[in-house]
Structure formats: structure tokens, C-alpha cells
Amino acid sequence: MMQGWHTFFMDLVEQMPLILHGVGNTILLGVTISVTGLIFGIVVFYLALSHNVIVRSCVKGYISFFTGMPLIVLLFLMYYGLPSWGVRLSPFVVSVIGFTMNIAAYNAAYLMSGYNSLDAAEIDAAKSQGFTPLQLFKWITLPQVLLLSVPALSNQVIRNIKDTSVAFLIQYTEFFARIQELAASNFQFFKAYFFAGVVYLLLVSLVVLMARWLERHIVIPGLHRTLDRQS
């Protein structure tokens, strides 16, 4: 058994440059989609507050559809489907678009539930001071909702990091794809996947630590009364 681990680590060291490159790609994708997913999620949330009934129901449909459909189907649709229309996108681009649509729907839903715990009187106060709807959103609604949603949003980032492993199914050469190659070359499947699990555990732990730090440093007294951790 120990012998097996020894040869496994020899192979691992040999392929380390490729594996590190894979880890880099995993982090690149994870960070990119977390940022685009948050930005687009904020846009969707803003539209969800629109006075226009049509806009609101479109947003509702968007959130419902993308939180109700598996991400992988969306990725396959773009990666295996679009070429039949002559559109060929790289695995990275497909991943970024697919993940962003999916994550934005979730983030918008979190922001909406944060919005429901806002104080209507504050909104009235801001209107009474003469803020335009956009100013009100920028300076009152969004800051409060973002602060309230930090736990939910950071859990989403953790999910994003884990879900990047899906991208290997559409040939994006991230970490798990490299592990596949490693396993296929030496047939040490259990060891390879176990090692992969440990690496993801470390990556996720890193995000958990960052999220805890963030939560500790942005505490505003009295605002987090509705704070609850859920994932």
C-alpha cells in the first residue's frame, strides 16, 4: 500500500507542472465567474426592482429558469449545440457565459431576499431627501443588501469553486482534467481522485477563511440582525 502511494507521488511530481497549470485554470475560472456572476447578479437584482411589470416578470422567469435547470445542460447546449449553428466558442468562454448566467440567477435571488428585510421607511426617507431611483439604489439599497447578503454570496463563491470541476466535461483543462490525465496514465484512480479531493478541500478552505475575515471586518451594528448562514 505505501509502495503504491510512493509511485503515485513520483508520477504526481513528474506531472506537477501540468497539474499546477490546471490549478491555475481552476482558480482563474473560479475567480472570473464569481466576479461576473456578482456583477450580473446585481444587474438582474436592479431590474427585478423595476416598476415595469414586463421587466419584472422577465427577471422572475430568468431567475426561475436558471435556478431550475442544471448548469451542465446549459454548458452542453453551448459547447455541443452551438457549433451546429456555426458558432464555436472555447471551453473557457462557454464556461464563463454558462456559469455567469447560472450564478447571477442565484445571486439575484439572494439579493432579493435581502431586499425584503430592508426598512421601507429608509427608502421613503431617501426619496424624501430627493435621491433619484438610481442614486437610491446605489447609496442605500445596494450597500445594505450586499452587506446583508455576504454569507449567502460567499457560500455561492464556495459553490463556484467546486462547480468549476464541471468544466472538465467540456474539455476545459482545469485541475480536475489534469487529474483525469494523471489517473489515466498510471491507473491509480483512487489515489488520484483522493488527491484531487484534498486539493479542493484546501481551495475551499481558503475561500472559507477569506469569507470569515470579510464577515468580521464589515460588521455594522444592528444591520445583521437577519444574518443567517445557509448554503
Binding site: 464556495i158 467546486k162 462547480d163 470541476s165 464541471v166 472538465f168 466535461l169 480536475f176 484512480f189 483512487f190 481522485y193 483522493f194 484531487a196 479531493g197 479542493y200 478541500l201 475551499v204 478552505s205 472559507v208
Partner: peptide, 10 residues
């Protein structure tokens, strides 16, 4: 913390 895909493959 461990992705489903990794767990499934293990």
C-alpha cells in the same frame, strides 16, 4: 467542500 464530481469519481 469536495465537489460532487470528485466524490463520485472516488
Amino acid at each position: 467542500a469536495v465537489p460532487l464530481l470528485v466524490m463520485l469519481f472516488i
